[in-house]
Amino acid sequence: MLTFENVSFSFRGGAGVRNLTFEISPGEIVALVGLNGAGKTTLMRLALGMIRPQQGTARIFGQPLDAVPSATWAKVGALIEVPLAYPELTVRENLRIASLLHGGGRGRHSVDGSVETWLLAPVADRRFRRLSLGNRQRVGLAAALQHDPQLIVLDEPSNALDPASVILLRDQLVQRAKQGAAILVSSHHLDEVARIAHRVLLMNTGRLIGELEITGTDLERAFFERIRDDDERRSETLGASR
């Protein structure tokens, strides 16, 4: 569903990602973890065509991103940084426009169903600008998922969510994966990730450095050890090349 082959991209100033190679299959939840600035959001932007690889190829549904037919994007749902929602519109209006933009005709994607699923009924007719951060995030998730996408890309989706909403999100992702969706999700909450992810990709300084074993008991410790080992290996390599 989503494939990266040696994908690299550098921003002006040097930051970026290098030689990213991975694949996500239908029914699989893959988590992306790493420190702030590791390149997780850049990877997701590359996956969604927001930036084009300078090297390598990113594919969705088997096709390179620059050759993907428009209609194929209707099978993708994403939430990167800011929800697709406008402050002057109500929650229901925002969900309706998200449905329209994802290829749904009038009523094709159930806005009412989405309001119910994401427990948005009490704020459904409230303008987006008047919502709390958590409610905004739930609107963003509803807007990204209400058209039942087969490929889901979510950047730190549990941000600002209360514990009940985190459980709701977890249930939604697990259920959608069981229905065959491929899911890429970044997170800082290792315990949360361990509960739902089939695989955890570790990212450090713009590179994928392997997978994190999620069967262990102390995930945080394992995570920091891997990051530290990678940093040490990198500084040794840099030292040797000087």
């Binding site: 994007w73 209707a74 994403a78 800011v82 406008y86 998200a98």
Partner: peptide, 14 residues
Amino acid sequence: ADGTITGLFALPVS
């Protein structure tokens, strides 16, 4: 300014 431009990618509407 609102950051909603990210939501206007990856859509069936170009």
